[in-house]
């Protein structure tokens, strides 16, 4: 590689922080024979769980007074049962030194509360810890998009998410969404956002000419809306406390 290539400023890597769900094995007693025995019972219950499962070995919950822990033998037992130790978590200097001797990273002792995982007994069911590279994300409901006019008498509901309308909404039509409502055309019908009580929901429309606007049950009818200086304008409606605020976009 030439010198010029090395000076190319385009980054070849990126550092990122990420939260991973990971299995932690907390050792309570320094009794490797019993550990070996009990682990093989667990493996028999859920063989799928113990297949190259990344693991953090926690030694900070060991009973005080447990002396002479053989870290190398402990790692070998875990390895034999399909658990791949990534790091240890320890507070005792003795353990930290042992880990460093094995070139194993050391994590600080846990302060957060952890949830004990019971590996499921049915082999087919994947447990969350099996794919630690994918953190559990909240399920995202896709936005419902409507691109044809919504006529009087029609009702459109976007359960669990947002509703986006690209065509006029006629008088007598009803738009319902658990999330936000966007109308990029004249809005002459009814728009009810956050109908399951989400007071953070908002309504956006290109031209406010609605019969009724409601967010989380707080509503205004056309008679009130008409008096608003923003009637007929492009607006953004949100709930501030108990009051529906209409602001021009």
């Amino acid at each position: 590689m030439s010198q010029a290539d090395l000076l190319d400023p385009a980054p070849v890597f990126q550092l990122k922080g990420s939260m991973l769900a990971i299995t932690v094995l907390e050792l309570a007693y320094n009794d490797l024979a019993r550990l070996d025995h009990q682990l093989s019972e667990k493996v028999a219950q859920a063989p799928n769980f113990f297949q190259n499962t990344p693991l953090v070995l926690a030694l900070d919950k060991l009973q005080p007074g447990a002396q002479g822990l053989d870290l190398r033998a402990l790692l070998a037992i875990c390895r034999r049962h399909g658990l791949r130790t990534l790091a240890i978590r320890a507070s005792l200097a003795e353990h930290i030194a042992a880990a460093q001797a094995l070139d194993l990273p050391v994590l600080p002792p846990s302060s957060a509360r952890e949830r004990p995982i019971a590996p499921s007994t049915t082999a087919a069911t994947p447990t969350p810890a099996r794919k630690p590279e994918k953190p559990a994300e909240p399920a995202v409901r896709p936005t419902r998009v409507v691109s044809v006019p919504v006529r009087g008498g029609q009702q459109i509901y976007a359960p669990g998410g947002d509703l986006l309308v690209l065509a006029p909404v006629s008088a007598g039509a009803e738009l319902l969404a658990d999330g936000n409502i966007h109308v990029y055309a004249p809005m002459r019908g009814r728009a009810l956002a956050g109908i399951k009580g989400n007071s953070q929901a908002r309504i956006f429309c290109r031209m406010l000419a609605a019969e009724l606007i409601s967010i989380a049950g707080r509503y205004k009818v056309a008679e009130d809306l008409r008096r608003d200086p923003n009637w007929g304008e492009a607006v953004h409606i949100h709930l501030a406390g108990d009051v529906l605020n209409i602001t021009r976009l």
Binding site: V148, P149, V150, R151, G152, G153, Q154, S170, A171, G172
Partner: peptide
């Protein structure tokens, strides 16, 4: 106009 609008909705659905 309102009735026609309703009819257009039925034509579309």
């Amino acid at each position: 106009v309102r009735d026609s609008d309703r009819m257009l909705g039925l034509l579309a659905s």
